[in-house]
Design a protein around this nucleic acid. Sequence first.
DNA 1: TTCCAGGTACCCC
DNA 2: GGGGTACATGGA
Length: 299
Amino acid sequence: MAGNSELNKLVLEDVRDFDTAQIFESGQCFRFVCEHDGSYTGVVRGCFANISYNNEEDTLTIWSNYLNEGSDALRLRFWREYLDLDRDYKEIKRTLSDKDSVMEKAILAAGGLRVLNQEPWETLVSFIISQNSNIPRIRGCIEDMCERFGEKIGRFGDRELYSFPAIAELADATVDELDLCKLGYRAQYIAETARRINIDGGVFLDTADKATSERAEEYLLSLPGVGPKVAHCVMLFSMKKADIFPVDVWVARAMHQLYGIPEDDHDAMREYAQNHFAPWSGIAQMYLFEYIRRSEKTV
DNA sequence: TTCCAGGTACCCC
DNA sequence: GGGGTACATGGA
């Protein structure tokens, strides 16, 4: 993207197994949008960035604002962490490809996927919104919510960028105010969950990557509007639980059609996958999700 | 018009 | 504890 003197530029070398479109359109995050040049712009922990990948030179270029003050070394660490660059996907893909031919094909189709390390609070609210909805509408609701309840943090091109609302902002909002974002029946889930989490300021959420999966799951399931699917997505996408296998309608379709597991038996699907693809079943789930969606689009 | 979308809560047996 | 059903909204 064109240089902007207020922005900081980082260039990361030797980045492989990386595809911006696959990563940001995978449905794991909802706030990155594609620019005309194929780069992606979004907001992470109150910091906005434009990210582009050059697959001939294996370089990643990140233009970001200065909200997270600090040295280039700190910014580097911040983005490497978020983009999961310190995980060896080549090795993971090799391991998973050896499991069966379905997974091998899925990885060939979507080998540039990575699990982002997102902020738990944002991920939780996003996936409560996601239930019984579709990705374009989820994006719209979240963007609307950020404009109404977040803070304006800058501008990139002709795009105004807003932070994701703080816990207290949503905890203080009424259901009617939240419903302005067209959340439908999910508005009261968000309101109640926000109030519940605001009690400890989100301390548990932010330390859940250190907690066991059992403890994290138990906590998440205690929140209104959070069932197994939402809990598992939050664990995988924001709590470093790479072995968790969320089952949604798409993954269920894949597990039924490609692995022959009964259509409605989500528990059996999860159990099979978490054994068969261990310890990377969560990452396997992302390949499958992308693979089945893509195959149905091109039919 | 009807169906479906990264499901969950609630009621009933 | 398993099995149905309502729930808001918008796009196909």
